[in-house]
Design a protein around this nucleic acid. Structure first.
Lengths: 219, 219
DNA sequence: AATTATTTTTAGGTAAATCTAAATAATTTA
DNA sequence: TAAATTATTTAGATTTACCTAAAAATAATT
């Protein structure tokens, strides 16, 4: 099935909204896609006709099995490109979204799979979101960004968003790796740095940049 | 000025046809774009209205100054992506065109310039065509692929299409570099390999793959 | 030069993806 | 529960990028 760019954007938006809220309403979609409810209704009919949605008029939509599959390949592409932009082209993690919005629509399975291999099959994108593999399977760790954690919480590193050589070097130097358990001592509003304490070791200071690259789960 | 994908494809097609034949006719464009003459006329009017073309009904078109500038940025993107696909993602040089046709339409000046830097500011794409720089300036060497050269011709290496580490290693090993002058002794139809002779050195055998990566000019 | 053939343009139409305005269904509130 | 509000759909238009068929301009041939 070959989707247009607009169709792909609808599928992706439904995927994300459905993740957060179950059944997705026409108005939610219109807001999320910066379009009007009437336009959404039109498109829902077309996507339903292509068997990508479960749609009952006035009752909102969810993705069908096929729709979910399509959504996962788009999400996979989006996140792989984000990883590429940050890790290889030195984009800031906060400036990659727009560009990835365009790159995700390039249709070539071979391109995506080769890109994946080139990047070393990363499991998380620069924002810490899991990247689906070529079968649509992705990590489901319930994770938080270190920046969002309250002081005094005990947490465990579950992934590293940006896997550049420089970051890996920094992490090795600080003795932090996936699985490391530590306590958040306090956060400094001035520079958004974070003081942490690793078990049986003295406390460390984590810069904002590093904190944004670390994804953790509560322990 | 923000062009649609279709508009960009017209500009690009006119650029290439104009290179070869001067004034470009409606029929030529229709053939080149797999569309009908009537559709071409429509688009020519729109692009003329955007000041990208010099168009006189029944007389064919050429690109205006603005149009040429647009064309060069599209060609730049296309060729940089082709280089990326071959050099980084290990695509074959003969399978990158389609994918680059899509990637070339991603709009982000920053992306292109960062990609250019990441690739090491290559001067030629994997087919040996020159890559315009960010000002639209490109090498104008009249070059041939080694594969297309007649035996007994004296030629000089003027560029290397694919600049992978492996290829550069092979070239160093064979003592071939940009500027190297040699004679094509003969070509073997069986495996398309080529026998060459470098001045003051014994003769060498060049595989088809290597020959396809070497671009030369007649001396 | 007049006729024929070719090329190009005009006229009118279609599908995708959007819009506004009006109608209808569902939900909330009095 | 009836009225008011909100959400959604339908109806009818618009723009882009195509199309076919017919008309007009240019080029080729006798």
């Amino acid at each position: 099935m070959n989707l247009t760019v607009a169709e792909e954007n609808y599928i992706k938006a439904i995927f994300h909204l459905q993740q957060a809220e179950g059944n997705v309403s026409t108005n939610q979609l219109a807001a999320s896609l910066n379009t009007k409810p009437a336009s959404v209704t039109d498109m829902l009919k077309r996507l339903t006709h292509k068997n990508l949605l479960n749609y009952e008029p006035y009752q909102g939509v969810t993705l069908s099995k096929d729709g979910k599959k399509q959504a996962l390949t788009i999400v996979r592409k989006h996140r792989l490109w984000e990883f590429f932009l940050v890790d290889k082209l030195q984009f800031g993690w906060d400036e990659v979204h727009e560009v990835a919005e365009e790159l995700e629509h390039v249709r070539s399975k071979k391109l995506v799979d080769k890109l994946d291999a080139f990047l070393g099959h990363p499991k998380f994108d620069p924002h810490g979101d899991p990247i689906p593999d070529s079968n649509g399977i992705m990590a489901t760790i319930r994770q938080f960004n270190l920046i969002d954690i309250n002081p005094t919480a005990w947490v465990e590193v579950c992934s590293v968003g940006i896997q550049s050589a420089e970051l890996l070097e920094l992490l090795r130097h600080k003795n932090i790796g996936i699985g490391t358990i530590f306590q958040v001592i306090r956060k400094f509003d001035f520079d958004h740095s974070i003081e942490i304490s690793i078990k049986n070791s003295k406390s460390l200071n984590i810069s904002q940049q590093l904190a944004q690259a670390l994804f953790v789960k509560l322990v």
